[in-house]
Design a protein around this nucleic acid. Sequence first.
DNA 1: ACAGCCATGTAACTTGTTACATGATTTT
DNA 2: AAAATCATGTAACAAGTTACATGGCTGT
Lengths: 204, 204
Amino acid sequence: MHTAYVSVRLGLLALLDDADMHGYQLKSAFEARTGGVWPLNIGQVYTTLARLERDGLVATSDGNGAHGEHADERQHVYSITAAGRRELSDWFAESPVEGPPPRDELIAKVLLAVAGGTERALAVVTAQRTALFTALQARRRALRAAGAADAAAGTGPDADEAFAAELVQDALVARAESELRWLDQCEARLLARRSAGGPTRRSS
Amino acid sequence: MHTAYVSVRLGLLALLDDADMHGYQLKSAFEARTGGVWPLNIGQVYTTLARLERDGLVATSDGNGAHGEHADERQHVYSITAAGRRELSDWFAESPVEGPPPRDELIAKVLLAVAGGTERALAVVTAQRTALFTALQARRRALRAAGAADAAAGTGPDADEAFAAELVQDALVARAESELRWLDQCEARLLARRSAGGPTRRSS
DNA sequence: ACAGCCATGTAACTTGTTACATGATTTT
DNA sequence: AAAATCATGTAACAAGTTACATGGCTGT
């Protein structure tokens, strides 16, 4: 496929690769697997499943096996198809960096603030840094909490979910730290530029 | 507005806040401002401008002022409106972390690979790390090149573009480094989990 | 009876994205 | 004259997202 940023679609596919499920289960599984940070509207599960079925990546069957008769209408079980498995393994193997990098909100904000002049850019950088710092502290707290939950869960039924939560909090903390460092770099470059007599307003 | 990830829409708005332009100029300006890493299909500029106009965030006028008569049809100049400025300054002020974090391709890939078992997850982590490392080296080279270009441009006409390229390469390098560190963490956690007798396949 | 969860789905909409058609102007 | 660049737009579709309608089942 040629479209780049498709987490829900391939996420559902990955869950179905692990086990056949129906829509409602997929919602819970998706949220559990992503440490609870990515809520998924149940409606989207069904729209996405319909599109996956349209594209032949999943197949549906009634829950009661092949009884036919008056099989329970409201229990559609989805399974991944061979084509779906192919698509999924392509996704897992695929390099995360081919073609242009995904548009990032923070990067876009800063770069485009620079278009409005050095002063505006500095203001935006400062504001974003403050907000990020607060968020980072919250994430670190969440990480400690996740660690405690993980220890408590041991190898119990919630261990998988706690493990996922830990991984995702790691990632969010790492990202926030990297963004903070980048904002510092931006500020330094902007200040250097201003004192070097650079443009304070866009030239053309 | 309630939709979260809108870089093109607000990007064009930010550029128009700096100066009135027509569509074709916006394409060049957007790409210049984003250091050339985010190419923008010219068609999208016009669709996005049409939507911005529909929403009252930009206004259009013919290029020849208010002549009326047979003003050049093919030179539409767009300007930001008061409502547009409000929207834009909201965007700049807005915290990057309210509500759930954006779905990230790499995080999603790893978390959902974990759903398929520890071994699969380890394979994905390794593959992604190798690819990322290669990309990181390329980015560092690009950054050195951007630095050289910046020095050469001085305060000339290309200085703005070179400056933007530098900022964006900083960001991409920082992100890649953070992702690499995270992948290391993931591997460590996965290995610890495996040797602790954790599940190698999803339980239910 | 009622609240709340389980379960399925649809209609409507948003932004992002590209392929295509069209023509003017400038450069070679 | 041909090629490249400037310039504008439309049609069509993908994926994400939510509000809403519908009903079964379970516990109080």
